[in-house]
């Protein structure tokens, strides 16, 4: 089963929860850090990677061999303004390119060809019980989806997979949650938390993905989220109390399970019983 941990708002506790769930499930569980712009799961798994794989995308390269007649078909084919034609020359802006290959196909003179362009690495670590695979995007590159897609190709055929999604509801989040069996939305009981939770729920409705909510820092104002969830018939899976000790432990690279050992059982129940039951009730399993 594949379960993504996502949230519209950043800083709600996705990584804390994804790590704690992977730790609670341990053997046979794989954690994917899909927050490739700012991966941080590995900070809590204090070992060096046993494997690192480079990830490249294909971008066009212009060959100035005199065959270009400046027709501009490549520039018109590009939806991302990644090319500039100057007379009978073409300039390429790799950071703008979405690697669709359209310009190469559009060029009748074969002066554009695809070449690899490094965008990041995949790091593999043996965590405490679980396996961790992190996508690490190169500084200066802004397009996360190609790296996330490469990362997801390493999902093992069996066992539980937990994906720590990038914050927000844009392409990196959608790329991460796509093809998961269930999405856990982490939120906090604040107006911001509620606002961005609504955005995330709307995004998941568009992609027809089942989801449930974990309310983190459940304290004053928790009714705000509970009422909304009840209203839109969204299951509240768990509430994590608001405690300073959790933040202190996190800041030292510690696990949520150290502060709340009882959550180990809660997470196991959630992942092995509660979520499968929800999926079954919806006829998805």
């Amino acid at each position: 089963m594949k379960i993504a941990v996502a949230s519209g708002k950043g800083g709600t506790g996705k990584t804390t929860l994804a790590l704690a769930m992977a730790e609670a499930m341990a053997e046979g569980c794989t954690l994917l850090d899909c927050d490739v712009e700012e991966p941080n799961c590995h900070l809590f798994v204090d070992v060096e990677p046993w494997q690192e794989l480079p990830v490249a995308v294909s971008i066009p390269e212009f060959t100035d061999n005199g065959d270009c007649d400046g027709c501009g078909r490549c520039v018109r084919a590009c939806r991302f303004q990644a090319l500039a034609r100057l007379g009978k020359r073409v300039l390429v802006f790799p950071e703008m390119c979405h690697c669709c290959g359209g310009c190469v196909l559009a060029c009748p003179h074969k002066v554009l060809r695809e070449v690899p362009f490094d965008i990041g690495t995949l790091q593999f670590r043996h965590g405490p019980g679980f396996e961790l695979i992190s996508g690490v995007m190169n500084v200066g590159y802004a397009m996360a989806p190609p790296l996330i897609r490469q990362l997801k190709r390493h999902i093992p055929p069996e066992g539980l997979v937990i994906m720590d999604a990038p914050p927000g509801t844009a392409c990196p989040m959608v790329t991460t949650v796509r093809n998961n069996d269930f999405v856990i939305l982490v939120t906090e009981p604040t107006p911001f938390g509620l606002h961005d939770l609504k955005l995330a729920v709307a995004t998941l409705q568009e992609t027809n993905l089942p989801c449930g909510v974990i309310i983190n820092r459940a304290d004053e104002g928790v009714a705000l989220i509970r009422d909304y969830c009840q209203e839109v018939k969204l299951p509240v899976l768990l509430e994590i109390p608001y405690q300073r000790e959790i933040a202190e432990s996190y800041s030292r690279g510690g696990s949520l399970l150290t502060v709340f050992p009882s959550l180990r059982v809660s997470f196991r129940t959630l992942l092995t019983t509660q979520i499968p039951a929800l999926l079954q009730a919806e006829g998805r399993l």
Binding site: V75, F80, Q81, A82, A84, R85, L86, L91, F93, M96
Partner: peptide, 15 residues
């Protein structure tokens, strides 16, 4: 009104 690449396209236009 371009989402991205306005500078590149504008430069091409004046050239």
């Amino acid at each position: 009104n371009l989402a991205q690449g306005a500078g590149i396209q504008s430069a091409m236009r004046v050239v």
